Amino acid sequence: MIQDIEEMNLQVVQFGQGFASMLPPMKELEKLVISGKLAHGGNLVLAWMADNVVAVQDPAGNIKPDKSKSIERIDGIVALIMGLDRALHGEIPMKKSVYEERGLRVV
């Protein structure tokens, strides 16, 4: 799959599922949730997955989501954490919003 993605000239970024990779974006996600700055548009599936997340902590205090301890699916939250990590590292090329270019369309 990675070869197919690279053939499409898309960048592949390695992201581990361990404590070291997950801690910074997990802490940032926690800040966003507590401050009320996480906007998910009322997405019911994401809210359901968020309710399912169980975080585990290692002896050093690092945290990460644990799929094996979570009741149901949490894949959307894990994807959110991984995407947040890319955003924190500035490795996502920021494109202008379509609304900045053409404005808001009202029907």
Rank of each mutant, 00 (worst) to 15 (best):
L80T: 03
S35Y: 01
P25T: 07
D75V: 08
M1Q: 10
Q57N: 07
K64Y: 05
K67E: 11
I5F: 09
A79L: 02
D4F: 12
L80C: 02
V13A: 11
G16S: 09
P25W: 03
S97Y: 10
R105S: 15
I81L: 09
V98R: 12
D58E: 06
G61E: 09
D4C: 10
A20I: 03
K96Q: 15
G83P: 01
E72T: 11
E100S: 14
G90M: 01
G36P: 00
M82E: 12
V53F: 00
P93S: 09
K64M: 12
V56A: 05
D4W: 10
I34Q: 14
D66V: 00
K95M: 14
L29Q: 01
Q14V: 12
G90W: 05
D66H: 02
E28C: 03
I63P: 02
D75Q: 11
I34A: 12
V45Q: 13
M1K: 11
A79K: 08
Q11S: 15
I77K: 02
G18L: 05
I77W: 03
A55F: 12
R105A: 15
A55W: 07
R105F: 14
F15P: 02
D58Y: 08
E91Y: 04
S21W: 05
I63E: 10
I77Y: 05
V53R: 00
M22W: 01
E30I: 05
I74Y: 02
A47Y: 05
K64W: 08
D51Y: 00
L88M: 15
G90K: 00
G61P: 04
K69V: 05
I81W: 01
V78S: 07
I71T: 15
D75A: 11
E30F: 08
L88S: 06
G83L: 01
A60G: 10
A50Y: 03
W48A: 15
